[in-house]
Simulated scan of single mutants.
Amino acid sequence: MLALIDTHHHFLDPEAHYYPWLNDAGFPPHRYGDHSALKRPYLPADYRRDTAGINLLGSVHVEAEWNPKDPVGEMRFIASLREQCGLPSVAVGQAWLHQPDAAGTLEELAAFDFVRGVRQKPRANLAPGGPPGGMTDGAWLQGYARLEPLGLHYELQTPWWHLHEAVRVAAAFPQTRIVINHAGMPSDRSEEGLRAWRTALAGMAAQPNVAIKISGIGEAGYQWRLDANRRVVLEVIELFGVDRCMFGSNFPVDSLCASYEAIFEGFAACVADLSAQERAQLFVENARRIYRIAA
Results as ranks from 00 to 15, higher is better:
Pro252Tyr: 11
Leu274Gln: 04
Gly216His: 11
Gln142Gly: 03
Met135Val: 02
Asp101Ile: 10
Glu108Ala: 14
His164Arg: 10
Glu108Val: 01
Val90Ile: 13
His182Ser: 01
Ala111Cys: 03
Ser36Asn: 10
Asp50Leu: 12
Asp46Lys: 04
Pro208Asp: 08
Leu256Ala: 00
Phe173Asp: 00
Gly104Pro: 09
Arg168His: 07
Trp160His: 05
His98Thr: 07
Arg82Tyr: 03
Arg292Glu: 14
Asp101Pro: 00
Phe283Met: 05
Gly221Ile: 09
Trp197Arg: 03
Ala64Phe: 12
Ile214Asn: 03
Asp243Met: 06
Ala287Phe: 13
Pro132Asn: 04
His9Arg: 11
His9Val: 06
Arg76Val: 11
Ile263Thr: 03
Leu97His: 04
Lys39Ala: 05
Ala171Ile: 09
Leu81Gly: 05
Glu15Ile: 10
Ser89Gln: 04
Ala172Asp: 14
Ala52Asp: 10
Leu4Gln: 11
Leu234Glu: 11
Asn181Ile: 11
Leu234Thr: 02
Ile78Arg: 05
His30Ser: 02
Gly248Lys: 01
Leu147Ser: 01
Glu191Leu: 15
Phe173Gly: 00
Ile237Ser: 06
Asp137His: 10
Tyr32Lys: 01
Ile290Glu: 07
Ala272Gln: 13
Pro208Arg: 08
Gly241Gln: 11
Trp96Phe: 15
Lys69Leu: 12
Arg48Thr: 08
Gly184Phe: 11
His98Gly: 08
Ala287Tyr: 10
Arg198Trp: 12
Glu63Thr: 06
Glu108Ile: 03
Pro29Thr: 12
Val242Ser: 10
Val72Cys: 06
Val90Met: 09
Val232Lys: 02
Arg189Ala: 07
Gln175Gly: 08
Cys257His: 05
Leu150Trp: 14
Ala196Arg: 14
Leu81Val: 05
Asp113Trp: 01
Phe27Ser: 02
Gly104Asn: 15
Thr158Gln: 12
Val232Pro: 01
His162Leu: 05
Asp273Trp: 07
Pro14Val: 14
Ala16Met: 05
Pro128Val: 04
Arg168Leu: 07
Glu63Cys: 05
Arg195Ile: 11
Ala196Glu: 15
Leu97Met: 06
Pro20Ala: 13
Leu57Met: 10
Ala268Arg: 15
Val284Gly: 00
Gly151Thr: 12
Gln175Thr: 09
Met204Lys: 00
Ile290Tyr: 15
Arg31Gln: 04
Ala103Asn: 11
Ala196Val: 13
Arg116Met: 11
